[in-house]
Design a protein around this nucleic acid. Structure first.
Length: 552
RNA sequence: UGGGAUGUAGUGUAACGGUAACACACCAGACUUUGACUCUGAUAUUGUAGGUUCGAGCCCUGCCAUCCCAGCCA
């Protein structure tokens, strides 16, 4: 079966084949994050497209820090971004670049435009400029448009030399003041900024705009296909104009695709930054965040995220993917790889009436039911166990096949027990369930072959770890109506972090390593993470199954 | 009301002009050493109105809806 191709693959196939625009060339893409925040799940889609396509076509994908605006970018993010990309499983080889490394060349191309009479130095201030821009009906006005080439060149050089204050001058492209596309109404190419650049320091006081810098950067690097999100569609004519009018060595083509939208969460860096800065979360890597580092701490595997990004497809349709699909992709990956252990979150006692006092035995329990090679582990068992509170019901509901008086249940990997009694505390809450065990059912199989409908997990009371467990889910936000930037924080669900104080864990969890994933039987998956300050085990539930929170 | 783009189940993605398919979600059932996993089944007048055609999700025309754009941000 031939797999269907997305629209970008169709274009690439066409252009790479005989007679195509890129005949004989190797596919070359780039991933160009702006170093002003951490990478999130939305960037993963872009990475899977850019790096993934390069892999698929035996091409190349560069990593480029898009750092043309000195006011917003910080070096802090550069390393984190690289780390996250590597964690996801992609590599840029030796092709790691900074847009700012091309400032000199970009500057020269600007001079070229001026010399060709295609750019001029404008004297309109920011406010004036917007006044002169016109509206949908009225063309823009640009009083400095006919400035002499030589004069513009002189002024531009003096701009670079630092002779003028910010906002005094800009360099503008001479394109079309009447265009319905406002990006073409003589867009600003360079602005003056006396701000230290994270990398160039104080070498420059003029900085190119994205619209001028990006096509040039792509062309210098020999990018064949510059893939970006839909909001740049209106900028493509300008992208092409730059490529057409400046003597760059290559002719990249910009193709736009819809960015990833996800239900119940925010993706804009502005908003994510606010969550961090205003203390709604501990940091960018808070497990509730949709950032790569946050997802990582919540137990997501890189494979699951890549699989998700591949399966959501690439189109130009604005989309909102249901969060449960991401969870599905994780579950699918973890189901094969994660070793299971037992842990009881809301414990009640289970006492086995006819099991000898003081006796203890070890059971070999499989680490992964879908992967025999994961082996088994020894789990101790005795008369007194902890079980999950909701594995017992005083008045069973229909189809309930766990513990209630008279019913038989299998203790996972151990024995079959029959519920004979229970005790409540003063508050009337069940705190102990009494059972008799079937000594002939060691390992969980009935000697007479009778069917046991229910199986529950348990922890040996004499050999358990008391732990505080933190269950994180995605920081769910109420879906529609779309909250405004200002008050979106009000829609945060406080239940996205649940702290459980008296969980009882299987002994084997003592040596759990951060980042390891475990299936929390019947309820979901979690990843233990060692919090060294409290010396308590902290669990991040990576996904929830049936009990997943969903706002109404 | 200027420019650019997009409309296929609840969600996302498919479908040389020829029986609208797949995944997630949901519901129903089977299986199961956890109710998980696995399996089976159910779910659509392809935004809308016309036109071309033996035949239209696909081609043509009008309409409607939604998204993006008037930063010296990216």
């Amino acid at each position: 079966m031939e797999e269907s191709r997305n629209f970008i693959e169709v274009i690439i196939d066409e252009e790479l084949s005989e007679g195509g625009r890129c005949e004989g060339q190797r596919l070359h893409t780039r991933f160009p994050p702006e170093p002003n925040g951490y990478l999130h799940i939305g960037h993963c889609k872009a990475m899977v497209i850019n790096f993934g396509l390069a892999e698929q076509y035996n091409g190349l994908c560069n990593l480029r820090m898009d750092d043309t605006n000195p006011e917003k970018e910080e070096h802090e993010y550069v390393e984190a971004i690289q780390e996250d990309i590597h964690w996801l499983g992609y590599d840029w080889g030796d092709r790691f670049y900074f847009g700012s490394d091309y400032f000199e060349q970009t500057y020269l191309y600007a001079e070229e435009l001026i010399k060709k009479g295609l750019a001029y130095v404008c004297e309109l201030g920011a406010e004036e400029l917007s006044k002169y821009r016109g509206d949908t009906q009225t063309p823009a006005v640009s009083p400095y448009r006919e400035r002499d080439k030589e004069e513009s060149l002189d002024l531009f050089r003096r701009m670079r030399a630092g002779e003028f204050p910010e906002e005094k001058y800009t360099l503008r492209a001479k394109i079309d003041l009447a265009s319905g596309n406002f990006n073409m109404r003589d867009p600003v190419l360079y602005r003056i900024r006396y701000v230290e650049h994270h990398r160039q320091k104080n070498k420059w006081c003029i900085f190119p705009m994205y619209d001028f810098a990006h096509p040039i950067q792509d062309a210098i690097e020999g990018i064949t296909h510059s893939l970006c999100s839909l909001e740049y569609e209106d900028h493509r004519p300008l992208y092409d104009w730059v490529i057409d009018n400046v003597s760059v060595p290559h002719r990249p083509r910009q193709i736009e695709f819809a960015r990833l939208g996800m239900s119940y969460t925010v993706m804009s860096k502005r908003r994510l930054r606010r969550l961090v800065e205003e203390g709604y979360v501990s940091d960018w890597d808070d497990p509730r965040m949709p950032t790569l580092c946050g997802l990582r701490r919540r137990g997501y595997t890189p494979e699951s995220i890549k699989s998700f990004c591949k399966r959501i497809g690439v189109t130009k349709v604005n989309n909102v993917i249901e969060y449960s699909f991401l969870e599905h992709c994780l579950r699918e990956d973890l189901n094969e790889k994660a070793e299971r252990v037992m842990a009881v979150l809301k414990p009640i006692k289970l006492t086995i009436r006819n099991y000898p006092e003081g006796k203890s035995e070890l059971f070999d329990i499989e680490n992964n039911p879908v992967d025999e090679s994961a082996g088994t582990r020894k789990v101790s068992f005795s008369k007194n166990l902890w079980i999950e509170a909701d594995d017992f019901m005083e008045e069973p509901i229909k189809r309930y096949n766990r513990l209630y008086i008279g019913n038989e249940v299998r203790l996972k990997g151990a024995y079959i027990v029959k519920c004979v009694d229970f005790n409540k505390n003063e508050a009337g809450i069940v705190e102990e369930v009494i059972c008799d065990y079937d000594p002939e059912s060691r390992g969980g199989n009935a000697s007479d072959g009778r069917k046991i409908r229910g199986t529950i997990h348990w922890v040996n009371a004499a050999d358990s770890i008391d732990a505080e467990v933190r269950i994180y889910s995605n920081l769910f936000l109420k879906p529609e109506p779309e909250a405004s930037d200002k008050d979106f924080v009000e829609s945060i669900n406080p239940d996205s972090l649940e702290i459980i104080e008296n969980a009882k864990l299987e002994r084997s969890l003592k040596d759990a390593k951060p980042g390891e994933s475990f299936q929390f039987l019947r309820m979901g998956y979690f990843t233990p993470d060692l919090d060294s300050s409290s010396e308590k085990l902290i669990f991040n539930r990576s996904v929830a199954l049936k009990d997943s929170f969903k706002p109404k």
